[in-house]
Amino acid sequence: KELVSALYDYQEKSPREVTMKKGDILTLLNSTNKDWWKVEVNGRQGFVPAAYVKKL
C-alpha cells in the first residue's frame, strides 16, 4: 500500500473529508482525482486536498 505524509494541518469541512495534522502518515487509497485524494487516517476514510500531502 502507498503512504503519504501530511504537509499541513487540514480540518475537514464535510463528512466526506478527514482531518489530518502536519506530519501525519496516511494510507493513500485513491489518487485518480488531481485535486482530492482519498486516504485513511486513524481508521477513517475520506478525502484531503492533494496539494496538502506528498507521496513517501
Rank of each mutant, 00 (worst) to 15 (best):
K1A: 13
L26G: 10
L3A: 07
L28C: 05
V39R: 00
P49W: 02
Y8Q: 12
D24V: 05
A6T: 03
Y52D: 05
T32M: 11
W37F: 08
E2F: 13
S31W: 09
K1R: 14
S31V: 08
A51R: 14
Y8F: 13
V48W: 00
L7E: 07
E2N: 12
V18C: 08
R44F: 07
K13R: 13
S14D: 12
E12A: 15
K54W: 07
K1H: 14
K54Y: 10
G23V: 00
N33G: 11
D9S: 08
V48D: 01
T27I: 15
Q45K: 10
E40F: 06
E12C: 13
L28H: 01
Q11M: 13
K13Y: 05
A51I: 11
L28M: 04
E2S: 13
K34G: 11
G46D: 00
V41G: 08
R16L: 14
K22D: 02
P49D: 03
M20G: 00
K13G: 09
R16E: 12
E40D: 08
D9L: 02
G43L: 04
G23S: 04
K34R: 13
Y10P: 01
L3E: 08
V41E: 03
Q11F: 14
E17A: 06
K21E: 07
R44E: 06
I25C: 06
L56T: 09
V18D: 00
W37L: 05
K21M: 10
L3W: 14
Y52H: 10
F47R: 03
E12P: 15
K55V: 14
K21Q: 11
K1W: 13
A6P: 02
V4W: 14
Y10W: 11
V18Q: 03
K21H: 11
N33T: 06
F47T: 03
A51C: 15
L56I: 14
G46Y: 04
P15F: 10
V39L: 03
Q45V: 15
R44Y: 06
E2V: 15
Y52K: 09
K38H: 12
T19A: 07
G23C: 06
S31N: 09
V39T: 01
A6S: 05
R44C: 05
V18Y: 03
D35Q: 11
D9F: 04
K54V: 15
L26F: 07
M20C: 06
Y52F: 14
P49I: 02
M20L: 09
N30G: 07
A6N: 01
V41H: 14
L29V: 12
K13S: 11
N42A: 10
V18M: 10
N30D: 15
Q45Y: 08
K1T: 12
